[in-house]
């Protein structure tokens, strides 16, 4: 069935290292997305003129453009248009942060606007000043809503990073292909075993994280 290839030499270790490449890119992108997304989300909730339209256009671009197209635009397009030779990893982080920031900003905006007005009014009538209202009432609620959603964004980011093999980054799928090619003679069925194992590896990377997100969402529902 082709699983035996993975027991040869350090093939299994190479697959895990490939997955680590993908995980590294996704974690870096998530951190950038969360930082920028929070700022943009607050700006969106403020509904400033002009800026609001610009941000809406940005969200729409992210909403309808496949990440793969964005990857190609940044990776091949910048080289051609500006003569900058971006490294594939840099291009990937730029694209995934561009996408993640929009997702995050929309979540932050939703969370901010989801807080009923009555909360602000009640805080004020209890004698809290604006600073206290935010620190003790609004922000804790927003954080509770945001944490499960941000964790969820991590799994989506991990799944999306599988695309980076298409711009030549050697991650787990690419390593898998290399292993299959190298053992074409000795184990012609390697494709089944290798891709099955990669399938399971991705599942093992994402499933615990999405379970955690679900658990926290339920726990903090009210």
């Amino acid at each position: 069935m082709g699983f035996e290839v993975l027991l040869k030499g350090n093939n299994m270790l190479r697959l895990w290292q490939g997955l680590l490449v993908a995980l590294k890119i996704s974690l870096l992108s998530v951190v950038i997305s969360i930082a920028l997304g929070v700022v943009l989300g607050i700006l969106m909730a403020l509904k400033l003129p002009v800026l609001k339209q610009i941000l809406r256009a940005y969200l729409e671009v992210v909403r309808i453009m496949p990440q793969m197209v964005l990857l190609f635009l940044v990776y091949f397009g910048t080289t051609k248009a500006m003569g900058i030779n971006l490294q594939a990893e840099t291009a990937a982080v730029i694209v995934f942060s561009f996408w993640g920031t929009a997702e995050m900003a929309d979540l932050v905006r939703g969370a901010l606007q989801g807080i009923p007005k009555i909360q602000y009014e009640s805080s004020m009538s209890l004698g809290l000043n604006t600073y206290q209202t935010y620190v003790y009432v609004i922000i804790p609620q927003i954080i509770r809503r945001m944490i499960p959603l941000s964790i969820n964004l991590i799994t989506r980011m991990i799944k999306t990073t599988s695309l980076v093999m298409m711009i030549g980054i050697v991650e787990v799928l690419k390593v898998g292909q290399q292993i299959i090619e190298a053992n074409r003679k000795t184990s012609p069925n390697a494709a089944f075993g290798v891709f099955a194992v990669i399938f399971v590896m991705y599942f093992l990377a994402c499933w615990p994280i999405s379970q955690l997100s679900k658990y926290l969402e339920k726990k903090w529902e009210n």
Partner: peptide
């Protein structure tokens, strides 16, 4: 919890084996 690309690779390249 798995990417489409990995699913397709498994179905298209793995299953024929």
């Amino acid at each position: 919890n798995t990417p489409l690309l990995v699913q397709l690779f498994f179905i298209y390249f793995g299953l024929p084996k």
